[in-house]
């Protein structure tokens, strides 16, 4: 097993887990964040395949812009809310929403 195999295995796990998370998360902001993680793993794939220019574009568009665009669109449509009261795991504060 060479180092490239190990990274490919890791990134396959990352892509699959985050892609399924994108499908199954009920909260759309969480799904947008998961999309940026998918593009992280895909950009590492491009580096393994020795295509630094494609990896550069994927990193720029996927990590920076697409997550932002999706979150902005979801916010504009009023489709998400942040579960403030669940963020503290053990102790709940007053619900400000």
């Amino acid at each position: 097993m060479s180092w490239a195999d190990l990274i490919v295995l890791l990134m396959v796990v990352l892509v699959l887990a985050t892609a399924f998370a994108t499908l199954f998360l009920r909260n759309l902001l969480g799904a947008a964040v998961a999309t940026t993680l998918v593009s992280l793993a895909v950009s590492v794939f491009y580096v393994i395949l020795r295509a630094p220019d494609v990896a550069l574009t994927e990193a720029a568009v996927g990590a920076g812009l697409s997550g932002l665009l999706l979150a902005l669109a979801a916010k504009r449509l009023g489709l998400w809310h942040i579960e403030v009261q669940e963020a503290g795991l053990d102790e709940r504060g007053d619900d400000p929403c």
Partner: peptide, 11 residues
């Protein structure tokens, strides 16, 4: 952002 949104810290 979380503090402004009202997430209370764990004690």
């Amino acid at each position: 952002a979380l503090y402004k949104a009202g997430v209370q810290p764990w004690r």
